[in-house]
Design a protein around this nucleic acid. Structure first.
Length: 480
RNA sequence: GGCGCGUUCGUCUAGAGGCCCAGGACGCCGCCCUUUCAAGGCGGAGAUCGCGGGUUCGAAUCCCGCACGCGCUACCA
């Protein structure tokens, strides 16, 4: 059997972490098994549809490095890949269901259903459709259908059990007595998710349906639908939920969950892929660093665990730093140029690149960290900061600045380089009677506007003699 | 409330009866390196494997019960 998996998001917003992880796993499973991966847009909810979603979905996949063999843009033998363009298929299936006695038209109004639910809640009855329209005779149903809005409800079996064979969880048994007749076709003629997935997964020959655990409760609906339609169900795999720091299902409320937000916040796709991969899956007993190629080669649903995983941003940050350090030089240079927010010539980029690299965990730190390279003045800072590491002793800070000023002044412009600068600063030790590590912070603040930043000797060499002297003078001024 | 799923260091995970008084990674702590901050190197603390019963010579691993957590419970997906 050829493995065919799909990612079938609904365009109701930007793809989120949990959702995209299902895409990653589905894609990886197809690739690892020499199968196909398709993208299908489940745009059956007209009320929640968002125009910008399609682009966001495709951008998210592209960003991570996920490609699809069939779907929007690339097309394929099962076109169209938008459910809103496949309405006849669902309507035909619904018609068949009615004709064969497996579904019926329901004329209940939303108001009545609402009332029913409230009453059930009040009397502590399990909520669910009460079946009022289940036994309306066909003739009456046909007649009323001509001028009354209706939905098509699927007749769930009310006795026995329905068993889901799940690749990750094993067999899960549901009591049919607790199932209610769900809406398969809405009154606007669009299918609900339940009908649409079953029809499309079948038509598109999906072999493995991989989705989030939040779907497991509705699996019996799908299983019975497959059965009623006479279709062969796919292999199901329900992925564990991804939890927020509050240990609840990750959602907008628990913070940034839109995948693309991570891109704009300075995360690398490699880091995100590696991070996502380990939310439920592992390669072996010791590997914690994997690339998308590893996934492509070794991903296996058999190694996905059933228990939910908490999204730990610390771990993502580590991975991001790791992949930044692992970047090849050319890309790193381009990245610096892109994220500095400043005009940078190649020589400047090359000068900062090596010392910046191991200090950046997120790309958006590049801007603040390199800000001092631009303009005559150091980034704004409070005068107190100069003496902060000296126990607040401004007098010492002043002496440090004075002596540094004198030492730097003696270096001729043509001799202004890292070695001479280092020698000058180290030469301050005996003059001041202080250890270098004790007084450098004053210089860091004067030059970079912060007691911590890129290495001082390099920094001073890069910004040049005149700006250095200017900034020392400015620092002295602040202390006066 | 009902149904379902889940439960190994703070977090992600390894573990499919003896290799485990539980391994790796992030984080944390300490030391080294060091011009700050990082990065890197070395070391450390950290899980009585949710609890209670079984089965077995032997259980994190099998069975049962309980507890807790989470998910679902729409003409949303």
């Amino acid at each position: 059997m050829t493995v065919r998996t799909r990612y079938a998001p609904s365009p109701t917003g930007d793809p989120h972490i949990g959702n995209i992880r299902a895409a990653l796993f589905s894609w990886a499973y197809a690739r690892a098994n020499g199968g196909q991966f398709l993208l299908r847009i489940e745009d059956t909810d007209r009320a929640r549809l968002q125009e910008t979603s399609l682009e966001a979905i495709m951008d998210s996949l592209h960003w991570l490095g996920i490609d699809w063999d069939e779907g929007p843009v690339v097309g394929g033998p099962h076109e169209p890949y938008f459910q809103s363009q496949r309405l006849p298929l669902y309507q035909h299936a619904a018609g068949r269901l009615i004709d064969e006695g497996n579904a019926y038209r329901c004329f209940c109004t939303p108001e009545r259903l609402d009332q029913m639910r409230k009453a059930q809640q009040a009397s502590k009855q399990p909520p669910g459709y009460d079946g009022r329209c289940r036994d309306i005779p066909r003739e009456e149903s046909d007649r009323r259908a001509a001028n009354e809005p209706f939905t098509v409800r699927f007749k769930m079996k009310h006795d026995g059990t329905t068993v889901l064979h799940d690749l990750i969880r094993g067999d899960v048994t549901f009591d049919n007595a607790l199932q209610d007749d769900f809406v398969a076709l809405k009154s606007d003629g669009y299918p609900t998710y339940h009908l649409a997935v079953v029809v499309d997964d079948t038509e598109m020959q999906i072999s493995h349906a991989i989705r989030g655990d939040e779907w497991i409760s509705s699996a019996p609906k799908h299983i019975q639908l497959y059965d009623a339609l006479g279709y062969e169900p796919p292999v199901w795999a329900h992925l564990p939920l991804i939890l927020g720091p509050d240990h609840k299902k990750l959602s907008k409320r628990s913070g940034d969950t839109a995948v693309l937000d991570y891109a704009t916040n300075g995360y690398l796709p490699e880091a995100m892929v590696n991070f996502l991969a380990f939310l439920g899956w592992s390669l072996d007993d010791h590997t914690s660093l994997v690339t998308i190629d590893d996934l492509k080669q070794h991903f296996d649903l058999a190694r996905v665990v059933p228990n939910p995983a908490v999204f730990d941003v610390e771990r993502l940050n580590f991975l991001n730093g790791y992949y930044i350090r692992a970047m090849d030089e050319e890309r790193w240079h381009a990245t610096i140029t892109q994220w500095s927010g400043q005009q940078m010539d190649a020589a400047l980029v090359a000068a900062v690149a090596p010392i910046l690299r191991e200090r950046v965990a997120r790309l958006d730190e590049i801007g603040p960290m390199t800000a001092f390279l631009f303009g005559d003045d150091a980034p704004g800072y409070q005068a107190e900061l100069l003496a902060e590491k000296l126990g607040g002793d401004a007098a010492i800070a002043q002496t440090v600045l004075d002596t540094a000023m004198a030492a730097f002044s003696e270096i001729a412009s043509e001799d202004w380089n890292q070695a001479s600068i280092e020698a000058a600063i180290r030469g301050l030790e005996p003059v001041l009677g202080l250890k270098l590590r004790k007084f450098v912070s004053v210089l860091y603040v004067a030059i970079e506007g912060s007691p911590q930043g890129l290495p001082l000797f390099d920094s001073v060499a890069i910004i040049g003699r005149s700006r250095t002297l200017h900034r020392l003078a400015a620092a002295l001024q602040k202390l006066a």
